[in-house]
């Protein structure tokens, strides 16, 4: 059993703007993950589509959906269908590329998102596995190449200080189940810690985990 679907509301839900949960709501979710990882609104966005996404993105509204997510909209936000215009009005450059080859992350509904602002660029590879549920399988950001197992929630903690990350691991294992844990060395002394979690974190738990010496992204 994969166990990717963890809540009854993954099945009875999400409440969303049509027409497709995988190609529209799921695309919003991939865009939102990219938005959280980037931490601000980019100047340039390039989306590479693979397989089913490459063939049917136009019909499913995947383009505006993924841009909605990158702008930080929720899947049921009425601005979703107008997201491309909203982004272009803000001067954001957008490009969509239909790739011919198979998905680099092994799923027919794959989008690879490149977000750029100034000299900073991140690349997020996500796939939409059905019903609006997504996986994030590859992230390149700030000198790190992170390869999560896929299923959310994922907590990324960047720190130069081992003590504070040990505290986070302790606290996390008390309130949640850590399904997978990995460490990635980046440039200089910084280390990225990845925690693939079983259950979603509540806002208050997330706040309790953060400290001045660490940078966290919660997907």
């Amino acid at each position: 059993m994969s166990g990717n679907y963890k809540s009854v509301f993954d099945i009875i839900g999400p409440v969303m703007i049509g027409p497709s949960s995988s190609h529209t709501a799921g695309a919003v979710a991939i865009g939102r993950a990219a938005n959280r990882l980037f931490g601000s609104i980019p100047e340039e966005i390039t989306i590479h589509y693979y397989e089913s996404f490459a063939q049917t993105h136009k019909g499913h509204g995947t383009d505006y959906a993924i841009i909605s997510g990158i702008l930080g909209f929720e899947p049921d936000d009425s601005r979703v269908p107008n997201a491309i215009k909203i982004a272009e009005d803000q001067g954001i450059k957008i490009k969509f590329i239909e790739e011919d080859e198979d998905s680099p992350i092994g799923h027919p509904n794959t989008a690879v998102c490149e977000l750029k602002k100034g000299s900073r660029e991140i690349v997020v590879s996500g796939c939409s596995i059905g019903g609006g549920t997504i996986e994030i399988r590859d992230i390149k950001m700030d000198g790190f190449h992170i390869k999560p197992k896929g299923p959310l929630p994922i907590l990324l903690v960047q720190s130069a200080d081992t003590q504070s990350t040990e505290n986070i691991s302790d606290k996390l294992s008390k309130i949640n189940t850590i399904n997978h844990h990995a460490e990635y060395a980046g440039a200089g002394h910084a280390t990225m810690y990845e925690y693939d979690l079983e259950n979603r974190l509540k806002d208050k738990d997330l706040n309790a985990l953060s400290s001045d010496s660490t940078k966290m992204v919660y997907l």
Binding site: I11, V15, M16, I17, G18, S20, D76, P81, G132
Partner: peptide
Amino acid sequence: AAMGVVCATPTAG
């Protein structure tokens, strides 16, 4: 199909 609001059960399709 008209891009209205629905609840996906289990998918929008």
